[in-house]
Design a protein around this nucleic acid. Structure first.
Length: 397
DNA sequence: TGGGGTTAT
DNA sequence: ATAACCC
């Protein structure tokens, strides 16, 4: 752990990601002490409303994990490869011209000595990522994750307590410096819409008519991004806690038969079941996601989901039962619901997601919910729910 | 463009 | 179920 580096704060030039470490504040708008802060976070009595939030951004995270796993990689230009992309690389490689998300061919051309490791299996990255989050949670439980390599920690309470400990002479000797980050680009789609309005810089956004912006983007997005343009972000740090979903995906050039799809789905599901088993909670919903081949509209995906039948959920923790078969059956039903297998098809991605995670026995014994459970109905798109008895509770009668 | 994740609609 | 966002 102590080997993991954080991106340097003083990084001057470089691409837009390189602004990197930001020990900074999300600037509180308006409110002063005594009243509840925005978004329901309570500002303590008699304190100022400004917060202290640390943003920890791990440097070329996957590459660092690989160098820790295999120290022989240290000092060499290293890229982490997923399919034909170098998704990230260490600083040796960057010095030699390799960029994030660069094609493997281009990267090898730029840097023939580049060492590549496969990073398609995220297991070790995910594990290391949560170790970092857990470490930060020792300082304050209020830690929000963003991806695998970023954490926001709200240290307001800790700082206030420490300031109260200080004598007045120590206090006056304190100097503080910091900066508000220059945020660029806000999201691809929104950026395009803003550009159409003639907004291409932060200054443009600051000075644009709020009313017109609200009409274009909706009040929610408009007000938020315009505040952001002034460096004001009143959003709370929301503790992430355990993940709300587990998913595994695989992309490929072509999948055009049902058997092929089934075997890929089986692989994805097997990994997922291991993960969910370790987590301890049980998923109550399963989803299948596909991406169809198309020249345009490339990022669009389709999905179908359904509840996991309770008798399958119950088997989940117990290693001896075969839980694969019923779940693969469900997934293939979802598959055929999306893909007409009697017609030719061409898929470029399959993904399985387990979500709606619950700690065991959510319903209390003796309550209606204990005896009733939403039924498996993949076709029902109305808000109506049908219910059936839980099989395993029949003996209770 | 990968292999993840979240929230809003 | 999808769309948008984040990394």
């Amino acid at each position: 752990m102590e080997q993991l580096g954080v991106e340097p704060a003083e990084e001057a030039g470089g691409d837009e990601e390189e602004d990197a470490v930001q020990a900074m504040e999300r600037v509180e708008a308006g409110e002063t002490g005594g009243s509840p802060g925005v978004h329901g976070q309570v500002v303590p009595e008699g304190s100022s409303s400004s917060r202290v939030i640390v943003h920890v951004d791990l440097d070329c995270f996957y590459a660092q994990v690989e160098m820790i796993s295999n120290p022989e990689l240290k000092g060499k230009p290293l890229g982490v490869q997923q399919k034909y992309l170098v998704v990230t690389c260490n600083y040796e490689a960057r010095k030699l011209g390799v960029k994030k998300l660069m094609n493997v061919r281009d990267a090898k051309e730029k840097c023939p000595q580049l060492v590549l490791v496969n990073g398609e299996d995220l297991t070790r990255y995910r594990e290391m990522s949560y170790k970092v989050t857990e470490l930060l949670e020792e300082f304050s439980p209020v830690v929000e994750r963003l991806g695998f390599d970023e954490n926001f920690v709200d240290l307001t309470e800790m700082v206030e307590k420490r300031l109260q400990q200080l004598q007045s002479d120590e206090l006056s000797a304190l100097t503080v410096s910091g900066h508000v980050y220059n945020n660029q680009c806000i999201g691809y789609k929104t950026a395009k819409r803003l550009e159409a309005l003639g907004i291409s810089s932060v200054l443009d956004l600051q000075t644009f008519s709020p009313k017109i912006l609200e009409k274009e983007l909706g009040i929610s997005v408009a007000q938020r991004i315009q505040k952001l343009s002034f460096g004001e972000d009143n959003s709370p740090v929301t503790p992430s806690g355990p993940p709300q979903s587990f998913s595994e995906e695989d992309s490929f050039k072509k999948c055009s038969s049902e058997v092929e799809a089934k075997s890929k789905i089986e692989e994805l599901l097997a990994s997922l079941l291991n993960r969910v088993c370790q987590d301890g909670r049980k998923p109550h919903t399963i989803r299948l996601i596909i991406r169809r081949y198309s020249s345009e509209n490339h990022c669009s995906r389709e999905s179908r989901q359904c509840p996991i039948p309770s008798h399958v959920i119950q088997k989940l923790g117990t290693g001896n039962c075969d839980v694969m078969t019923p779940m693969v059956d469900i997934l293939m039903k979802l598959f055929r619901n999306m893909v007409n297998v009697k017609m030719p098809f061409h898929l470029t991605l399959l993904s399985v997601c387990l979500c709606n995670l619950k700690a065991l026995n959510t319903a209390k014994k003796g309550t209606i919910d204990y005896y009733l459970t939403p039924s498996l109905s993949t076709t029902s798109r109305s808000g109506k729910r049908s219910f059936k008895m839980k099989d395993t509770h029949m003996e209770d009668f």
